[in-house]
Each structure stands twice: as structure tokens, then as C-alpha cells.
Design a binder for these strands. Structure first.
Lengths: 371, 371
DNA sequence: GCTGGTGTCTGTATCGATCTAGAAGCTATC
DNA sequence: GATAGCTTCTAGATCGATACAGACACCAGC
């Protein structure tokens, strides 16, 4: 755009403008950052001339260096962006976060925490951010360590639990227990559970007690523990409840993982899917197997993401306030950036939202069977 | 973490480390950036000592200032992040972009382009990014102007068309024409169109020719023009084809907007929805109105997003290679950052993917009618 | 006429790195 | 033994802004 006669592009800086106007660099800086430090008239003159020359204001990086702030918050998500964002729950949460941070003009810098490559961690270490938000990363993930090396404020969602790091979480165990209790109350005794990945190794299929206990995704460890205690409390032996692990938290993977469980004489009459994404997969698999939901199979999900109410049938699910939690993360980050040391918020309450994907065992819907 | 005995935190810099080791600052810098400029032994010693002291490497902002690069690409999306990311098409595209940029260790800095507030533009002007990617913003949106003020490389998806700015697009008109032609070939004569927003004013309802022509979302202008020409070519007068505008590009808004169109004596037998998100809304509205798809109503979408094949019924839709287009954006950005001036890529080809949401008029499915 | 207070504006040190040019040491060659 | 060519390391300028401590003018009050 602005090209010098001699061909070199004359980068505009505060100094350029100051010299042009015959005033000092500091005054131009003040025109942008401290309007009270100079007369309104002069400020107008400076801004007008800046617009004329096409000067866009102080350079972000130089300002960042001097002030120690860039105006960006790093967000660390597991795996690729695609997988993370294909989950409406993550999107809702991120939206809450972004809205809250907008109050301070902070943007979100996304980085995917791929564990594979040692060199892939450099971009994370070298990211110009004021703080980090870590979204549901497994225990011991190297990307989390990389984000911590700069000693910037860091806030964690759900997991991992790190000493001295504030965490925004929910009572996963209570939520899962509520889901199981609901199914038990409906009279179901042959239960099944479809789990999100327990470890980042893409394993799929039945998950025994050992695998469950060794889960590096703490969220799953807690939800399974909650489910187990609710089952045991009702006299059901947990080790006889089939738990199937999905290779990924999306409907397709969920449908694939659960397919084998739905047929056979002792197939479950009710399934607890540990996320709405997986619950959608169960619905799909059930349809493919010719089962009616909820007549032949009851399904309960987890999250109450935006996809839950519009599913077919609408999902009974454990509601967690996703947007609010995103906002909480933002509030926490802002406080930390102001130098405060706020207490981590209490785990948000969860409760069951009853819609129509779960019904009493035996299937009232058989009346108008039309298969 | 690292606290000095006297209470002040002793920020670690290249200089600290250099003095500690009795060498020069430049050498420490070289240890990180130019391994060939010093002996392997010394480099090892530096890195080891750095790890010992907890030095995470050169400061990103200082490096950014000196090098003129921060390692981040700004992404400008319309409206809130939530709306943008709830569209699987956007997510797929973003994933392609992120993957391509990862090759250079570049992260994505998200900013929502809210038009409301003048002050809301500052964070965009002041964002520390090396380049901008603008995703489907309407003509004349102030946020786009804000992103341009820094004279950084800028790449546009779909729109707006700006002189000298490379654009990654598709042949929208041909795609829409293919959709209409398909419906016509199936014998449909009573067509309807469900449009994405034509202007960012959240208007909903029938959109006359004037409104269509005044659309500031060019994508919609082009798709409607393509649809019109295909209709006219078949002898159908376009001004008699009802076009309904949705207030937002999501299934709920789409269902709401289209509901009124589905009933009545001269209700369309076939609908072209200008995005898969809207097509999902049509499916939902049709179900609510007791219509069977495709027996009573044929539906064609646009995008072939990841939601299309798993819809019920699977969507017939116009396929655009979303992930590839994201990658193209990334390739373009990387080239521009290397100082090259690559030609904007040819508009990617689109073609119709026939699944089962559109069928011949008259409804073959009426045989086993069970309503 | 002097003191003290306000309101504006400026000079300079500083943030933490990278780049360029060149110094120092060491070996090989004629 | 002087010259040339390496490799390895360093000094100093530079990127562009902001914070702090004053300088200067002007006015009020005694």
C-alpha cells in the first residue's frame, strides 16, 4: 500500500508520526493509550494525521514486549481441531469462554496438543499468549507441560489435576450416578455403558475393570466410578455390567463400538452413554439394528449439548452448564491476568434432564409396533 | 515458580543464561535458532543448563518484534464463535486450514467480527498475527477493514471480493444450478428455496427479488443466481419460486423459517436448502409437519458437510471439498508469508452427491404409507 | 514577587531478543 | 612463515513501543 518513492516500504511507527507532526514519540503513544495525558485538541490532530498516513496504531508485538501482554489466550485442545470442534459440547463451552474474554479484548489462540512429535511442542512453548486454557487433556500429556514452561497463568477444564492450578470441573461422579439411578428406577436391570476413550490410544471394545481403573482421562474415571457406585448401591455387581470403550468421542465411533453389544439374548435394555455424542451414536446403532428407542432400548447421555434436545428421540441426559463453565474459565483467566489469585470455583451442579430416550423396561411403545 | 530470595522474580532471559555460563548472549540465541553456528558440545551445555534453570527458550514477543513474525494466523469469523463453529462445514474447513498451517508451526487466533461496536474493532487491529484469513464475511463489514489496516497478508474465503486480495472460492452458481436441475429432472415443478441470511440483519421470511439482489452475502447472491438461471432454463419463472430466508445458518432457524412454506395446497414438492445446516432444519420441519422425506418432500442441501451422510434420510447435496479448501487457504497463507505472490487457485469444482433425500415427484414411497 | 499546584508535553531507559560484521584461534598450503 | 580458509564465538545496533521522572508554562493565592 504505502510505497516509498525509492521502493522501500517506509514502515510507519510512532516515531515517524511524531517527527511528521513535530512532537515527541511519547505523546503519540499517549494519544492511543492515555487520552488524559494530553489535550483533546492535540490528540485529535494526531489521530487525524495517523488516519491520513494509514498508520494503524502502535505495533502489537512491540507493545506486547514492552507491556508483557499480547491480548491472546492460548487454548490447548486434545487431538486435531476437527475432532475437538465436531463436539457441540466443546463448541458451546468455547463460545462461553470467548464471550467472557472479549470483555478484555482477548482473542483465542488455538493449538492442538499432538503427542506424537517432540518438535510439535515447540509451537506451544513459543506461542505468544498471556495465559493458557487447557481443555480436557489426559494426565501426563506432554503438551500440557509445554504450556506450563512459560510460567503463565494456566487454567484447566476437567483435567488434569495439577497442584496449584485452578480447575473448573463438575461433579462427574454424581452425574453418572444420576443417569444410572434413573435407568434403575425405570426398572432396567440389564445395563450397559458406552465410554469415551479411556486413554489416548484409540482402543475400541470392551473395557475391563483394569482398563477402567487405568484411565488417563480422569473425566471417564470419575464418571465410571459414579456409575459403578450407583449400580452397586442397587445391588448390581459392577463387574457384570458391560462397559464398551469408543475409539473417539463422536457418533460414528460410538455406533461402531456399541454395535456388538445390542444384539444377543442378554443384550442390555438400557445404555448409559458417557457423552451426548456417543448417545447419538447409540441411537444410530439401535436404528441400524432394528431396535426402537426407547421401546426396545433406553438411552441416557451426558452433557445436554445443543444436539441433545433435537435428537430423535430427544435425549434424556445429564445436564452440565457448558456455556457457564466456559464463562467461568474466562472469569478465572481474567482474574489471574489482573494478578489476583481467585479460588477455583466449586464444581458446577449437574442434574438429569428427562426427555424421551429412556422409558420403563418392557417397552410401553410396543403397543403401536409397526416394524 | 522460580522465586528469588529477595522476593523479586528473576525473569530468565538469554542474557541471564549467557552470564551464568560465561558466554555471549548471541551464542545462547544461536543454540536455539542456528545449531550450525556453534559447536555441538557447547550447545548441549547451554540447553542442559537452560533446562536446569527452567528457561523455556527465547521470549516469544521479543522474538516476534525482532523477527517480525509471531507464529499466529488470525481467523476472522462472522458473528460469535458459537454460531460459526456449530456449522460442521466451518469446522471441517478450519481443520484443513489448521493442519496445513501446522507445517510452519502456526496457530490460529480466532476473532469474532462483531459489527455492533466501534471499540470492538480494536482487538482486531491490535491482534498480534502474521496474516489474516477471512471466512465468509459480508461485503463491507468493518471488521475486514480493521484486519487490513496492518498491511499483513490477507486471504479471503468465498467473500468479500477485494481488489488484490487472493480469494479461495467455489463455483457457487454452478452448484446451485446442479441442485435445481436435479430436482427438475426428478419431475418437480413446485420448487422452493431456503436461503441462508442474505444480510447480517437477522431478517427471516420470504425474500423477494429486491432482497435477493441486495444480498451482502455474495455466496448467497451467487447461489440464488445459479438457481434462478437453472429454473429459467427449464421454463420456470424465478419470481414464482418462493425463496425463504433464514435468520441464521443453523437447523433450528432453518426449520422455523421454512415451516410456513410446507403446508397449503400449492406447497412445494421439493426444496433446495442453501446449506446442509438448513437442509437439516427442513428435515426437522418436515417431520414436524407430518411430511415424509423424500416421499412427500424432496430436499437437496449444499456443502456435503460431515452431517450430510448421517442425516435421516441421508442428504442429497452439492459437494464442495471443505477440507481441501481449508488446506488451500493454508497453502496460500504460507506462500504469502514466504513473500511469494501466488495466483489465487481456481474455484474448486462442485458436484452433486445423490443420496436419498430427493426422489421423483409423486412419491414412490406412498406405497407403504403408514400415516 | 514568590510559592505551589495543574495541565501538557518530552527525554531516556528499558522490554528481550536477532542480525550483521567481524575477531580469535586453528589448521592446511605453498 | 606468511596467507588463506575454516569454525566458533562476540559486540553492538536494531526492532517499536511504554513507563517514569522531570521540564515548562500558566494560574491562583498570599
Amino acid at each position: 500500500m504505502q510505497k516509498h518513492p525509492d521502493g522501500s516500504s517506509p514502515r510507519l511507527t510512532l516515531l515517524t508520526l511524531a517527527q511528521d507532526l513535530g512532537i515527541s514519540r511519547a505523546t503519540v503513544s499517549n494519544a492511543y493509550n492515555r487520552p488524559d495525558q494530553l489535550s483533546a485538541a492535540l490528540r485529535e490532530r494526531i489521530l487525524a494525521r495517523a488516519a491520513e498516513l494509514g498508520f494503524a496504531g502502535p505495533d502489537p508485538m512491540a507493545r506486547g514486549l514492552r507491556r508483557g501482554r499480547v491480548g491472546a489466550v492460548g487454548v490447548l485442545v486434545d487431538e486435531g481441531l476437527s475432532r475437538a470442534f465436531s463436539d457441540p459440547a466443546v463448541v458451546d463451552l468455547l463460545d462461553g469462554l470467548a464471550r467472557e474474554l472479549q470483555a478484555d479484548g482477548l482473542g483465542l489462540l488455538l493449538h492442538a496438543g499432538r503427542a506424537d512429535d517432540e518438535a510439535a511442542l515447540r509451537p506451544i512453548q513459543d506461542a505468544a499468549v498471556d495465559a493458557w486454557v487447557v481443555l480436557s487433556m489426559p494426565d501426563g500429556h506432554p503438551a500440557v507441560a509445554a504450556a506450563r514452561t512459560r510460567n503463565r497463568p494456566l487454567v484447566v477444564l476437567d483435567q488434569p489435576v495439577l497442584p496449584g492450578v485452578p480447575l473448573v470441573g463438575i461433579d462427574d461422579a454424581a452425574g453418572a450416578a444420576a443417569a444410572i439411578a434413573h435407568l434403575l428406577a425405570l426398572g432396567h436391570r440389564r445395563l450397559g455403558v458406552l465410554a469415551m476413550p479411556l486413554r489416548p490410544d484409540r482402543q475400541e471394545g470392551p473395557a475391563g475393570l483394569a482398563r477402567q481403573a487405568g484411565a488417563t482421562y480422569q473425566v471417564m474415571r470419575r464418571r465410571l466410578a459414579g456409575a459403578a457406585s450407583a449400580a452397586e448401591a442397587a445391588g448390581l455387581s459392577w463387574d457384570r455390567v458391560p462397559v464398551v470403550e469408543s475409539a473417539a468421542n463422536d457418533p460414528d465411533a460410538g455406533a461402531r463400538a456399541v454395535a456388538g453389544l445390542l444384539t444377543g439374548d442378554d443384550a442390555p435394555t438400557a445404555l448409559f452413554a458417557c457423552s451426548d455424542q456417543l448417545a447419538l451414536g447409540v441411537l444410530r446403532a439401535a436404528r441400524a439394528a432394528g431396535l426402537r428407542v426407547p421401546a426396545d432400548l433406553s438411552v441416557v447421555g451426558f452433557d445436554d449439548s445443543s444436539a441433545a434436545p433435537s435428537a430423535d428421540p430427544p435425549l434424556t441426559t445429564v445436564r452440565q452448564p457448558l456455556r457457564d463453565r466456559g464463562r467461568e474459565l474466562g472469569v478465572l483467566v481474567r482474574a489471574l491476568l489482573r494478578g489476583e489469585t481467585p479460588p477455583a470455583p466449586e464444581p458446577a451442579p449437574v442434574h438429569l434432564v428427562v426427555r424421551s430416550s429412556a422409558a420403563p423396561v418392557g417397552g410401553g411403545g410396543a403397543a403401536d409396533a409397526r416394524g
